[in-house]
Simulated assay, not measured.
Amino acid sequence: MEIVNFTPVPALIGGALIGLSAAFLLWSQGRIAGISGIVGGLTKPVRGDLAWRAVFLIGLVLGGVLYRVLGFGVGVDHIQPVVSPTLLVLAGLLVGVGATIGAGCTSGHGICGLARRSPRSLVATLSFMGSGLVTVFVVRQLMGVGA
């Protein structure tokens, strides 16, 4: 495999912005920046709790749009999924089930939980990463997809 678009500076800046936004949300709202929890809170809104969740999610979408509009997304048009849309939807649903069972998602445990030195988040993050490694091995090496 050849890495075509290795961009350490934008990745570093993006990671710093994610960390800053997670810290700001914790400081200003006392909330963890876990996407599954934020979206889940929209399904059962509590008075005074809807605005920050909506703004956070709108910011996620607008950030991606702004990145593309400013021309930073140039050169990634060739990236295409190597599996069917049906399999992608199924994978998304499984991620949602896993986030529910694991009491949080990769962003909540991996970014915020580890920063708070949560043992539960460490175990969850190791599980996410291990599952991802096994999945990539099975799909690429055993199934021969995307190799």
Rank of each mutant, 00 (worst) to 15 (best):
R47K: 04
L70F: 13
R120H: 13
I32G: 11
I38D: 01
R117F: 15
G30A: 03
A115Q: 06
G75P: 06
V39Q: 04
G92D: 12
G40Q: 11
L88W: 05
F24W: 07
V74K: 14
I111N: 02
V123W: 15
F24I: 01
A91I: 04
R68Y: 15
T86R: 14
I32V: 06
V82M: 02
G104V: 01
S121R: 03
L25Y: 07
P85Q: 04
G34V: 00
A33C: 04
L25R: 02
I35C: 05
D77M: 02
L42F: 10
G96E: 12
V82N: 07
S84F: 10
G104E: 05
Q29D: 06
G30W: 04
D49S: 09
G73P: 08
T100E: 14
R31A: 02
T106R: 08
T106F: 04
G96D: 12
D49G: 04
R68C: 07
F56K: 06
I58F: 15
V39Y: 12
G71P: 02
H109G: 01
T43D: 06
A23C: 02
V95P: 15
A124G: 01
G110P: 05
L122V: 12
V69Q: 12
K44G: 07
T86E: 14
V76S: 10
A115P: 15
A91W: 04
V39I: 09
G37F: 15
H109F: 00
L57E: 00
V97Q: 13
C112D: 13
F56N: 10
G92H: 04
W27M: 05
F56P: 00
I111Y: 04
R47N: 06
I101Q: 06
R47T: 01
L122Y: 11
W52P: 00
Q29F: 14
L88N: 11
A33W: 01
C105K: 00
V95Q: 08
G41L: 07
A23F: 09
T106E: 14
H109Q: 06
F56T: 09
T106S: 13
L50V: 13
G73I: 00
G104Y: 05
A22L: 03
G71K: 07
G92Y: 11
A99N: 08
L94C: 08
L66W: 13
S118P: 00
I38W: 01
A54S: 11
V55R: 14
R120V: 11
G73F: 01
G48H: 06
V65T: 04
G59W: 03
I35H: 12
L57M: 03
A99W: 07
H109Y: 05
A103H: 14
G34H: 02
G108A: 08
P81N: 10
V89M: 09
V83H: 07
L66G: 11
G98P: 11
G34I: 00
G40Y: 02
A22E: 09
Q80P: 15
V39E: 07
I101P: 02
P85K: 03
I58N: 09
V74L: 14
